Computed example of a mutant assay.
Amino acid sequence: MTDQNLSAPVVVTDSDHPNLDPEHSVLDPAGIGLRRAQCRTAEDVIAQCGGAQVLVNQYAPITAEVLDALPDVRLVVRYGVGVETVDVDAATRRGVWVANVPDYGTTEVADHTMALAMALLRGVTGYDRSVRAGVWDYQVARPLHRLDTRTFGVVGCGTIGQAVAARAAAFGMRVLGFEAMQDRSLAGTPIIRVGLDELLASSDVISLHATLDSRSARLIDARALASMRDSAVLVNTARGGLVDTPALLAALDAGQIAGAALDVLDSEPIDPAVRDALARHERVVLSPHAAWYSEESFVRLKTEVAREAVRVLAGRSPRCPVNSPVVGGVTEASPTEVPR
């Protein structure tokens, strides 16, 4: 199999994956060609993706200018959940579907979230560092508390947020939740629905699972951090742009909060200066945008973007659209969405 068929209708704009074998396993039997680019800018996408009917996208920007320059594109499908790399409004106006894969790594992200939270709540990373440095003393992580005395705050109560809430409740923690979508039902979950201000002021763990958009950007800013308990910890496995990183560093430096566990940052790969500033804090835990990852979720993500390409190229709607594109002046109907 080759990723360099220049006439292939499906183009991966960019990818840090080692190969495209899972995508080929879906596309090859359907007789659909696949090619791989490595674009960083909108100009790269225009130059390298000519003739594409489907763009499979990781980080490269898909702007209105890109879509104008690539008029054959019918679908932009993202490797992952967020679609902030895509101008969705521009795609909608141009009759282009935008889709994502919201359910490929729910279990992994929820498990990773709890791993990060537990590392702080039980002092695991602090103990590990101290023992490696030759110190054998339980007091290096004081104070620690029983989990069933703690309150766990979930910001964004979609599928992942609810999965995290169930895990936190299983440890005996009281769970508060803030959800901007007022019509989202939380029935059957352990979540007590509250406003954001109450959640920030009352939680020992604030875990972020909101979608990143113009309303939620820098949701956790200096004001939000100042309203948190000085014993609270922040966990972010959603999107780096939800947090004002300079404000977080200032809050950590001032002791306004007790710690942070971050799988995502607003600039990735992490800027060395930001990495060093965060790493100097004993109660900061970092991972490299890996919460989504398992071998199983990796294959699921890659095969599902390929299946979306097959669906749209066959004239069907994608399984997980995030828009309803306008085609010939008529808005395409979106199928029932997968829970998000």
Rank of each mutant, 00 (worst) to 15 (best):
5 N>K: 05
32 I>A: 09
194 V>G: 02
110 A>F: 06
227 S>A: 13
295 E>M: 03
155 V>Q: 11
243 V>N: 01
122 R>F: 04
236 N>D: 14
54 V>C: 06
185 S>W: 01
243 V>Q: 03
191 I>P: 00
249 L>R: 11
204 D>N: 09
60 A>M: 03
98 V>A: 04
30 A>L: 02
44 D>W: 12
84 E>K: 03
201 A>W: 01
62 I>H: 08
4 Q>M: 08
151 T>E: 09
103 D>E: 13
167 R>V: 08
90 A>M: 01
237 T>A: 15
259 G>N: 10
175 V>I: 06
210 A>Q: 14
334 S>P: 12
317 S>F: 00
308 E>I: 03
64 A>Q: 12
270 I>Y: 00
264 V>F: 02
24 H>R: 15
306 A>I: 12
158 G>E: 08
178 F>I: 09
109 V>H: 06
102 P>D: 09
3 D>I: 09
62 I>K: 05
235 V>T: 04
298 F>D: 12
206 I>N: 01
166 A>T: 10
282 E>N: 08
324 S>T: 15
102 P>G: 12
219 L>Y: 02
78 R>E: 10
197 D>W: 01
64 A>E: 14
298 F>R: 13
264 V>H: 01
24 H>Y: 13
11 V>R: 02
182 Q>A: 15
221 D>K: 09
134 G>Y: 04
340 R>P: 00
323 N>R: 14
273 A>W: 01
156 G>H: 10
45 V>S: 11
143 P>I: 12
9 P>G: 14
148 D>S: 15
318 P>T: 01
249 L>I: 15
332 E>N: 08
38 Q>S: 10
257 I>E: 07
211 T>R: 13
234 L>H: 02
210 A>S: 15
107 T>N: 08
142 R>C: 03
236 N>E: 10
265 L>W: 02
143 P>Y: 07
61 P>I: 06
246 P>D: 13
29 P>E: 12
25 S>A: 15
81 V>A: 07
80 G>Q: 03
227 S>Y: 00
249 L>A: 06
191 I>Q: 04
270 I>K: 02
160 I>V: 15
188 G>K: 13
72 D>M: 13
293 Y>E: 10
241 G>W: 09
63 T>S: 14
54 V>M: 07
136 W>G: 04
267 S>I: 11
187 A>Q: 10
144 L>A: 04
7 S>P: 00
282 E>V: 04
183 D>V: 11
340 R>F: 14
78 R>L: 13
67 L>M: 14
63 T>F: 13
195 G>K: 03
227 S>I: 00
298 F>V: 00
151 T>K: 07
181 M>N: 14
297 S>G: 07
288 P>T: 09
180 A>H: 11
121 L>W: 03
18 P>Y: 11
19 N>Y: 05
231 S>D: 15
120 L>N: 11
3 D>F: 11
95 G>C: 10
94 R>W: 07
176 L>T: 13
331 T>V: 13
